[in-house]
């Protein structure tokens, strides 16, 4: 195939313990470490491996958000993507709006594969991949842990609740990645320098002419209920006694 399109979302780094703003209107992101959504790194790694095998000629990374998402796109270019597209949106976008924006890029670039993370670890929505596939009227293979390409088809092993399901899909298609698909490479310093010269195109979201979906209103952000700290026991006898006291044995 010619092109593979990969989505990269800028999210709060997964090691950060998020803090809710005092007025409950959102999550504190000022001065917080931001990274590529880990599942999107897996998506990019898979695209790069397909290209390195000679099964694709170009890997394009795309992000939707503020100018700051350039950082994550540059990291994607340093990993090995050929060029980047930033769909510039100054306001937060809903999952459906993102899927519609990605569809506009898909229609322009005609990729053979779109690879996205199965979920973003900030809002844990797990929606964009299937939404894009629906709007594009193409197959989806979500939660992929193995991907084999064969001419105009792909065979995908999916991590489902009861085990591993294999499906066959016609290309082009949307794949969403699960954890065991691959282990993303580390970025090397010379590649970071090289990435600065690679093309990064900015397109205002408005210029894509996509209809804005009716957004969900985020009413309030609150901490979850805390669990009470429990008791420590010294040995197995103490453990069994404590379990009996709780009626668990």
């Amino acid at each position: 195939m010619d092109k593979i399109l990969v989505g990269l979302k800028r999210v709060v780094d997964y090691n950060v313990r998020v803090r809710i703003k005092a007025d409950g209107t959102g999550v504190e992101t000022d001065g917080v470490k931001m990274s590529i959504n880990p599942f999107d790194e897996i998506a990019l790694e898979e695209a790069l491996r397909i290209k390195e095998r000679g099964d694709a000629t170009e890997v394009i990374v795309v992000s939707i958000g503020s100018s700051e998402a350039q950082q994550q796109l540059r990291t994607g270019l340093a990993m090995g993507a050929d060029r980047a597209i930033l769909i510039k949106a100054n306001q937060p976008t809903s999952a459906l709006s993102r899927a519609r924006a990605l569809l506009a890029i898909v229609n322009r670039e005609s990729p053979g594969l779109v690879i996205l993370g199965k979920q973003a670890i900030d809002n844990d929505n797990s929606q964009t991949g299937p939404m894009l596939a629906a709007l594009w009227n193409r197959p989806q293979a979500t939660f992929a842990s193995k991907l084999e390409l064969d001419a105009n088809k792909a065979r995908v092993v999916r991590e489902v609740d009861v085990g591993l399901e294999t499906i066959e899909i016609d290309l082009p298609a949307v794949i969403t990645t699960d954890l065991r698909l691959n282990e993303p490479r580390y970025v090397k310093l010379p590649d970071i320098m090289k990435a600065k010269k690679k093309p990064l195109e900015e397109i205002p979201l408005e210029d894509l002419g996509v209809a804005t979906a009716p957004a969900l209103e985020e009413v309030h952000f609150a901490p979850p209920a805390e669990r009470q700290k429990g008791v420590m026991v010294d040995d197995v006898a103490g453990l069994i006694a404590a379990l009996k006291a709780k009626g668990q044995l």
Binding site: S94, A95, L96, A99, D124, N125, S126, Q127, T128, G129, P130, M131, L132, A133, A134, L135, Q140, T142, F143, R158, E159, V160, D161, A213, P214, A215, L216
Partner: peptide, 23 residues
């Protein structure tokens, strides 16, 4: 919100032109 629902429901939502409330 199982792998069945996470696979199917966003596809349904997109075809209906609405955002999904996950989970």
């Amino acid at each position: 919100t199982t792998t069945f629902g996470k696979d199917l429901m966003p596809r349904v939502a997109a075809l209906l032109g609405v955002n999904q409330i996950s989970d």
